[in-house]
Amino acid sequence: MKYIDEFRDGPTARALGAAIARAAQSERSYRIMEFCGGHTHAISRYGIADLLPANLRLIHGPGCPVCVLPIGRVDSAIELALQHGVILCAYGDCLRVPASAQMSLQKAKARGADVRMVHSAADALKTALDNPQRQVVFFAIGFETTTPPTAVVIEQASRLALQNFTVFCNHVLTPPAIAHLLAASAPGAALPAVELDAFIGPAHVSTVIGSQAYEPFVARYRKPVVIAGFEPLDVMQAILMLVQQLNAGRAEVENQYTRAVTRSGNLKAQRIVAEVFELRSRFEWRGLGELPASALRIRERYAAFDAEQRFGLLYRPVADNRACECGAILRGLKQPRDCKVFGTACTPENPLGSCMVSSEGACAAHYSYGRYRDFAAQESA
């Protein structure tokens, strides 16, 4: 554990906090969005915000694939399980995401649907091999990190000529979402958006796509990105690097997470994804709306393994629960404590929105690590 402990050292964290405070210019503000939910949890868990100067604000982004999955896609998964009678394999975080009519995959299972939690795409393929008389559908979600394993099982199913395995593909892409947030914050944009100065770039995603994937929109919008690991010292070093860039008037992609991320990324993973998937023209994100070229679909040569085609699924957009502020939180417009039902009607045991369900959701982070209690104490003082 010594290697991990070195990235969680308290004195070093305080020293970094002091360095950030010295670097931050008192006459300006710094608005930095951590896109990835893993960073949100690190910030809440280790109290990183408490070590930062008052004029530096960390803004939670939409970087949780469960959180950004719209209700209509969850409804389709429930349709597969209840109406088509398939074995639906899904990651654990998906099971309790609220859908229409107060339903969820977990409640569908309680009604008799064969919904099974899996830890990997390979588990779903094995389920199909073990149940040759049943149709098995893998409810595939995630950013670029989980997309290559899905591509691999589709290729394997094709080589095996499996007749009972398909994938309900909901893989989405990180750079288009960041570009959308930057475009929305530009003068004259149609949708309300939080003003942003810089991004902490995601870690695991970047191991696949590489740092070069962020260069086009950094050049276009002149907003720096620093890719960071998930440990607290990683995050704090990335914040210091961003402050230094902003002070110097630079807008570049920098890589703090050099022990795992390269400029080109994982070329083998990129090739398998390009072989199996292609861009969708548009895809709905919870909180962000329909974004062009922001998600993947299965290529025609692998259409036999596309659950949307095999079962004739028709997507129907569904409005979020009006009491839930998840959409605004995903855009960075609000924080979990701004939601009236946070910690009362909406808890991890009884979630009204996806941000409270996922292990990477902003509301779950604030609730799990008690950050909302700190804010309540400050406001009452």
Rank of each mutant, 00 (worst) to 15 (best):
E144Y: 11
E144S: 13
T146N: 15
T147H: 14
T147R: 12
P148C: 06
Q156A: 15
L160N: 10
Q163F: 15
N164Q: 04
N164W: 09
F165V: 12
F165M: 10
V167P: 02
H171P: 02
L173M: 09
L173K: 04
L173F: 08
P175E: 12
P176Y: 03
A177Y: 00
I178S: 01
A179H: 08
A184S: 12
S185R: 06
S185W: 04
P187R: 10
P187I: 15
G188Q: 14
A189P: 15
A189I: 10
L191Q: 13
E195I: 10
A198C: 08
A198Y: 02
A198V: 07
I200Q: 03
I200V: 08
G201E: 00
P202W: 04
H204F: 05
V205W: 01
S211A: 13
Q212W: 10
A219I: 08
Y221R: 05
Y221Q: 11
R222W: 10
V225T: 06
V226Y: 02
V226L: 06
V226S: 00
V226C: 04
F230M: 13
D234G: 04
L242A: 01
Q244N: 15
Q244P: 15
Q244M: 15
Q245C: 10
A248M: 07
G249C: 05
E252I: 09
E252P: 09
E252W: 12
V253F: 08
E254M: 10
Q256F: 03
Q256D: 06
